[in-house]
Design a binder for these strands. Sequence first.
DNA 1: CTGCAACCTCAAGCTAAGTTGAGGTCAAGA
DNA 2: TCTTGACCTCAACTTAGCTTGAGGTTGCAG
Lengths: 146, 146
Amino acid sequence: MTQANFISIGQLAKRTGVAVSAIRFYEEKGLLHPLRTQGNQRKFLRGDIRRVSFILIAQKLGLGLREIEEQLAALPEGRNPTLADWQKISRRMRHEIDEKIKLLNRTRNQLDQCIGCGCLSLQKCQLYNKDDRLGLKGPGPRAVLD
Amino acid sequence: MTQANFISIGQLAKRTGVAVSAIRFYEEKGLLHPLRTQGNQRKFLRGDIRRVSFILIAQKLGLGLREIEEQLAALPEGRNPTLADWQKISRRMRHEIDEKIKLLNRTRNQLDQCIGCGCLSLQKCQLYNKDDRLGLKGPGPRAVLD
DNA sequence: CTGCAACCTCAAGCTAAGTTGAGGTCAAGA
DNA sequence: TCTTGACCTCAACTTAGCTTGAGGTTGCAG
């Protein structure tokens, strides 16, 4: 009963389909907390496979690593997310997706009105109102608007 | 009749609400082609105000500067976009927005099915299929998937 | 002719999410 | 014991869309 519960970084990479370098990166960002062997090599819990799955899925839903870290940090120490945790984040995501869809619909309607007018004017064109930003919401590439 | 048709970079910045540094950046990327004074200062055509407006609006629709450059480059030399040009790009954008909305709706439906299952498994969770990428389509932050 | 604002050119920095590479260590089988 | 593959760290690069700063010029008003 020596090594049964731990897996190497390579194993974790293979199980999740994530690159080894990415896993190291996640650790650096505080999303994973592997132990070390005497020889300084990382050893992960089997449960970390789920943890990484969680990261991947949350990313698909548009969360940044920063936000994912917060979600994971909110969980009781070392515990993996439970059904209730997952439902909580799911519902929050569902709401955010709804918002995105609404924004896109609004934009599409404006665009429809705009096809044919050829206005191209910042003063007149409804499409240009600084408030709603289509794609990226966080900083990302430094935002134009202060 | 000396200076009537030209404006300085500062004027252009004020008219469009874009930072001076951003305008220089657009020139560097080939979106603007100002002339120079004897003293090496940029002089823009009044029409460049519309050109910049075009850039801003196209950005709002999710186009990258690269793509906007192509659109502008396709126009007859030095000419500003006409009604027909604008309609062409508008219709293309309308199509892309439709696609985005479809993708989000699909994701939302999957999420609805997922709330309550608590699966969190890469094997089982419908949400995790590598094909559709929610947010960014181009490279941007280096994509996970090859 | 002087002073100041507006202009100029580089170069470096920011964010996100990683990748790539150099140079070195660990562990296990032959 | 040797050799190979998996692992380690740390630094630098990638993309997009700009901003910020240093250090120097231009142009206009007084």
